[in-house]
């Protein structure tokens, strides 16, 4: 008798655990894309780009329009990533760079970049509202969003979640190759670590920065097209993802791409396990608690540079 009861309970616990792990991975993967976008910009220009939430939504709307016209999710994904890169580059070249030129001294230097990107976020979201309206749109996932079956029960992890994981892993692989194996990556790293020495070595640091913004924009564009299916598309759709990406990036230490991914995974696991095993209402507080605990132990984040930088 006892065994008959015990088995299903054990099975339930097991599937619950597996589900928690898998959903942690897939939400961590999405946070990671956003965190990477923020870290890429932070490394190249010392700016936390809050406008990234707006950029990513805008490119996802562009992707949405492509789907409306052609019916192809894959084409839309490509268009979104490419337009994300272009948008990022344009923002750096024609918005951030002139602002930095103007504001060079005084205490405003500390907050001007943050405030400027917040302002830009509002403008992009308003423009989206002007063009596409405020009603929720949806993007259909290219593969099934029905959960897999594990030991007879359907779990909250679908073929689409798996696809997301694979895409994020591929994107990271590409970034690693770009940064570690190519001249462009070397220029990006040199400009981030020491803009002055990079310039004296003949590297066009300003252009390299713009490239950093472009790569970040592409990463955000990918994040949007992967995040929105299964959710809704509206001008503020990625605000929370931005916050979680930012928290993940800060946990990881802001400087390191690897740290961004680790921070995102820590956040993904903490949130999913806290909501699965303690209370669903702990979604947001968990993010705060994890962040504070990490920063209390290491005020510069897990993989932050030793010389603590403020800006």
């Amino acid at each position: 008798m006892i065994r008959q009861y015990a088995l299903p309970i054990w099975g339930f616990k097991m599937t619950q655990f597996i589900t928690a792990v898998l959903t942690s991975l897939s939400s961590g993967a999405i946070y990671a894309l956003m965190a990477l976008a923020l870290v890429l910009v932070w490394r190249s220009t010392r700016v936390i780009n809050f406008a990234q939430a707006g950029q990513a939504v805008l490119t996802t709307y562009i992707g949405y329009t492509v789907i409306q016209r052609t019916g192809s999710y894959w084409l839309a994904l490509l268009v979104a990533v490419v337009s994300g890169a272009i948008l990022g580059a344009v923002i750096d070249r024609f918005f951030m760079r002139p602002i930095f030129k103007r504001i060079k001294s005084g205490p405003i230097v500390m907050i001007a970049p943050v405030v400027a990107t917040l302002g830009l976020l509002g403008i992009i979201q308003a423009i989206i509202g002007f063009i596409w309206g405020l009603t929720n749109q949806s993007i259909e996932a290219p593969v099934s969003t029905g959960g897999f079956k594990v030991m007879g029960t359907v779990i909250a992890f679908s073929r689409y979640n798996l696809l997301v994981l694979i895409f994020v892993a591929l994107a990271m692989l590409l970034l690693i190759i770009l940064f570690q194996k190519t001249d462009i990556g070397l220029a990006l790293r040199a400009s981030a670590y020491s803009p002055e020495i990079a310039k004296l070595s003949g590297i066009k640091v300003d252009s390299v920065r713009t490239l950093g913004w472009a790569i970040a924009g592409a990463s955000g564009g990918l994040a949007g097209m992967l995040y929105i299916p299964g959710y809704f598309l509206f001008p503020n759709a990625m605000d929370l993802l931005l916050v979680f990406g930012f928290v993940a990036a800060v946990i990881g230490g802001l400087e390191s791409l690897f740290g961004a991914v680790v921070g995102a995974m820590i956040l993904g696991f903490a949130i999913n396990f806290a909501t699965t095993y303690i209370s669903a209402k702990l979604f947001f507080p968990t993010a705060f608690i994890v962040l504070v605990v990490v920063l209390l132990l290491k005020p510069g984040g897990l993989f932050g540079s030793k010389k603590s930088r403020s800006a």
């Binding site: 001249d183 070397l186 790293r189 040199a190 670590y193 020495i197 004296l200 003949g202």
Partner: peptide, 20 residues
Amino acid sequence: KSVIAELSVKENLALPGIWR
């Protein structure tokens, strides 16, 4: 001693090669 501490010796030497 203007070198980029975070990069390897080889990478430091490779910087001008990026644009040459």
